[in-house]
Design a protein around this nucleic acid. Sequence first.
DNA 1: GTACGTTTCAAACGATTGTTTGAATCATAT
DNA 2: ATATGATTCAAACAATCGTTTGAAACGTAC
Lengths: 227, 227
Amino acid sequence: MAEVDTRLRILDVAELLFTQHGFEATTMRQITGAAGVNLAAVNYHFGSKEALIREVFRRRLTWLNQQRLAELDRLEAEAGGAPLKPSRILEVFFGAALKMAADTDGGGRTFMRLLGRTYTKPSEFVRGFLAEEYAAVIARFKAALIKALPGVPAEEILWRFHFMLGAMSYAISGADALHIVAEGALDDGDTGALYARLMSFMLGGLRAPLPTLPAKSAKSPRIRKAA
Amino acid sequence: MAEVDTRLRILDVAELLFTQHGFEATTMRQITGAAGVNLAAVNYHFGSKEALIREVFRRRLTWLNQQRLAELDRLEAEAGGAPLKPSRILEVFFGAALKMAADTDGGGRTFMRLLGRTYTKPSEFVRGFLAEEYAAVIARFKAALIKALPGVPAEEILWRFHFMLGAMSYAISGADALHIVAEGALDDGDTGALYARLMSFMLGGLRAPLPTLPAKSAKSPRIRKAA
DNA sequence: GTACGTTTCAAACGATTGTTTGAATCATAT
DNA sequence: ATATGATTCAAACAATCGTTTGAAACGTAC
């Protein structure tokens, strides 16, 4: 009985503290202290601090990505081979994330903030299983978007998907960064409004006119050999 | 003579290591070791590790924001009171950042990656002077955008500006996060192309149709008092 | 109640952290 | 050449890090 309680308490507290202070700055004593468990409990239940970090990601990420894949499966089954609307695809991918971020009580919001930050700061050992966890999902959504936007080059779609991930990360980070650009002027508590705002912004960006790329050797100082 | 050399070497090395491993994970011995200076040099020249971190930001950020303000001044002077084109405003703000990010040799690129990451992870003591450093710039560009987009509510503009910052952050973080979404499929070395891609995406997002916001009390679980 | 595997506990482990110290070295001006 | 202030240096500082240990407490079956 006490076992599960201890594991869960550690995971929840660690998730929160990692989000607030980062991995390195969060000590085992802070975690176990706030969780009300013994210092040795982390090493006993998870093996090490790194393993704890991985488990914090794994327990939510696998569920999130399974949700995404299941919804995409359903959508593609309904369409029966026909290309999907880009807006539908984005709604599935980012909607799942924002739905999780809307969960303020269960810790989903905390986790999504943590995920958005870690995504740009791979911490070496997190990158490995983060890429592993995302590989299948990205491949599926990438393919769906390419199919949905026949006029847009695949490379451009990938970049714009990348930009959208950045926008979502900042959207979820919310207050932290917003306090810098606009001191308390924005309310990031209304996740319904946030979803609507982010989605219209993303769709506008995704369907924007294609950029006129400069000649590669013109603006870039790098010289391409044999070209 | 040796003074300036030591200070600069420390700053450059610290900037790089902070970007690669984060603030907490980077030790004074790593910094001084890689810089080829004595361990005590950091405390002698900067006072503390925190002061060093602040100085790493300050030396580039003040210059960057002065550049932005000067360019905006010039543009508004040319316009003579007339609203600017939104694309021009974005070009000034994000162009300055990407121009700095394009500097692979002088460390500008390294710094912009560091900045993008720190922006969502305010580290408590960095947030203060980061907000201070940005306050004037954000106010000016916010006002310019509001003037340039009379049909768009100010709150919506701020949110979209926030989203754009996220997109830019991910764009500059580049390879790190891209390796997760697309294993080596994208070339983030061509900053000219990156600038064009990002700008068209942002403009599309900025000019997207306004979202239809859900009724506040409908989707949000929070109950607003006296409303 | 006794035995057994699991979990918790206080205490300590060696290693590493940022910082400080006081002498040694340097550059410069008189 | 000598004195002075700035800088560098090796060495040590107390504090804290993640992890380990062996015994104590627990629940559960016989």
